[in-house]
Amino acid sequence: MNFLHDIGKYFLMIKISFSKSCKREILYKQIFKEINDLVLDSIQIVSILSFFIGGVVSIQMALSLENPLLSKTLIGYATRESVILEFAPTFISIIMAGKVGSYITSSIGTMRVTEQIDALEVMGINSLNYLVFPKIIAMLLYPFVITISMFLGIVGGLLAISLTGVPSEAYIQGIQMDFESYHVTYSYIKTLVFSFVLATVPSFHGYYMKGGALDVGKASTQSFYWTSIIIIILNYIITQLLLA
């Protein structure tokens, strides 16, 4: 019953965060702040991870395709497909559930513990609109981060494969082979759904947390746990709907 109650509370939170809007100029300021904190500050870690994981994926592909009868172009092809279909949108989103999710839960949770949210409510301000709505809007730029991840993942694969002695021309030929633009569309649809989850689920855990400083840490852990689970389940559902 608690679980169903929380689901209802989550959707109500989203509804309230879109209603009784604060002043536009305040929201613009908040949105730009959130773009900086949630999106731009994530680019560095995403770039490093994507570059090296792309490299690892291509090396593993090369290892699996040692048979001389198999074309080396398959390494590039398989790396591209892995990065675009799964690694960039899903794997990076789970990492973001840790980075962005913990930041959101702990910042809102701390505001709850120190009565800053009560202060907003007493002033007659819709605290959900002020705190959660700008995060949802800022995360609409999350596909930009995933684009960087896709690009760097493939480039990382190219550099790693060059070092193993496989001709880079074969890899480049492979990444252009049988290109399905629909796969990119599918990937961006997933990314947009995940960006909404990444903004709202951690906000829910922070906003409705109870207790003190220690509970902020617990709420962050819970937030990561649930955000990851929701992303994995939605990943399956979207894949089933769009690719099966």
Binding site: T114, E115, Q116, A119, V122, M123, I125
Partner: peptide, 28 residues
Amino acid sequence: QMGMVFQGSALFDSMNVLENVRFPLDML
């Protein structure tokens, strides 16, 4: 029409004194 002083002050951490006091005016 209500003002509230909270037990722990509830000031906004990221704002300086002037911004904290100005906040209700900015918002409302």
